[in-house]
Amino acid sequence: MTGIEVGYELPEKEFSITRETLIRYAGASGDFNVIHWNQRVATEVGLPDVIAHGMLTMGLAIQVVTEWIDDSSRLLEYGCRFTRPVVVPDDGAGAIVRVTGSVTAVDDDVATVTLKAICDSVTVLGKATARVRIG
């Protein structure tokens, strides 16, 4: 990977999250917290509806980076804050999360990618950054 400069924009991706996505992720990850599948409990604890696992959104967002570097052994670090929940209504459409990424620093052979994940015009991941080896 050569010629990577600050400002480089990675190909963006759009993810659809439905109740089925949440149930699949719960099973695959072992995270069975009821707020991710039970509307009654979610609303009882003050949420507008069932919400996606933060780790699901995090796991989707990094695909913008892994598809770009094409080898996850180049991934050195990945972190984010879970700033806003992704609300997943049972309406057949679910939620759409759009993820964009751009290179915000290059230091020798390591690039920092800053990711933005937007759902319903709201940023759902904060300070989402990945450091990748580009040399």
């Binding site: 933060g54 995090m58 996850s72 991934l75 670090e77 972190g79 984010c80 804050r81 879970f82």
Partner: peptide
């Protein structure tokens, strides 16, 4: 408890 923040540092996949 909610998950506020998460970061991974990788040596390899």
């Amino acid at each position: 408890v909610v998950h506020g923040d998460q970061r991974f540092e990788y040596s390899r996949p």
